[in-house]
Design a protein around this nucleic acid. Sequence first.
DNA 1: CCAGCAAACTTGTCGCGACAACCATTCCCG
DNA 2: CGGGAATGGTTGTCGCGACAAGTTTGCTGG
Lengths: 173, 173
Amino acid sequence: MDTPWLDRPQLSSWVRLRAVLELLPGVLDAQLRRDADLTEFEYYVLSTLSETPGRALRMTELSWGTNATLPRLSHVVTRLQKRGLVERFSCPEDRRTTHVRLTDDGWEKVRQAAPGHVAIVHHHVIDVLTDEQIRQLAAISDAILARLDPSETMTATYTRYDEPPKPQTRDVK
Amino acid sequence: MDTPWLDRPQLSSWVRLRAVLELLPGVLDAQLRRDADLTEFEYYVLSTLSETPGRALRMTELSWGTNATLPRLSHVVTRLQKRGLVERFSCPEDRRTTHVRLTDDGWEKVRQAAPGHVAIVHHHVIDVLTDEQIRQLAAISDAILARLDPSETMTATYTRYDEPPKPQTRDVK
DNA sequence: CCAGCAAACTTGTCGCGACAACCATTCCCG
DNA sequence: CGGGAATGGTTGTCGCGACAAGTTTGCTGG
């Protein structure tokens, strides 16, 4: 097996990306925990629901919008439910499914947490990049996601939730 | 408090970056666990040591090179030590410090794991980007890191290990 | 020269996420 | 129209990382 090593520019880019992957989530998470007593992931669950008409989604749809596995989401929803921020309910149409709805408390929570979170995203990402770089970053992320997530579950996030993520060939090959 | 919201291009870029942050580490981690029985972080600890003259570093220096807190690193080193991949030893010069050295087994482990890991980095990141985008990504990551890690601990990674990370104002403010 | 502070780790506890196993419902097809 | 597969979700277990003490060694100033 001939090893395709990384040349200088590639290595340089990868090392830096890796550092971002390692450090950025922690910073965002810490801010939300401190100021809103929420995980970043919890925040995005609430946030996703808050942006949905009816403030409710099926578990599976919610998992598409938040890049989560179903088990993980289920645990998180359980915790949020215990705190009264969301509620589960089932639809008689398909009794396998569970729907999650944002409660008024959950809505209020998101309203209070959003400014701080947006501010830190601005401070650590948006503000340090030029408009040009922001466009570049979108394109780069898109390219990586296309390979990472061939079903394009993610890129559908801010568009639709109405169709399943195509043949799920999520093989790490 | 007037909230500086995200406009369309910014939001688009952030949503995609977030998805990458969420998904990419898991994919890399899964490959290493499966093929080498190593965490990605464990791999980078071993890898960092393997690239160091003498294949040894102080704990603190090692933490600079791997973006880890000292407690985390300490735990990981303990595990690696139990598996015989690294060994701790102390230097009489400053008896507070602990040094970590890659064992022959550890060296062999890294040698075996590297090709697979490099391959998946190629497949998921390098190969989907143009040379131009790789340069852009390095610049973007640099900008984010500069804010994230004002001490520039990270950018020093592939250069030097010999000086402390300047006044540690790692305030999440 | 010693008191107090800082540096360098280590250890313990807790919570979240991955994975696997499981249950319920629905779909598909002979 | 009945039986197996597929879909949708939940639960249990385990391991790693964050955070908060605690410990030892070195440093510095009065």
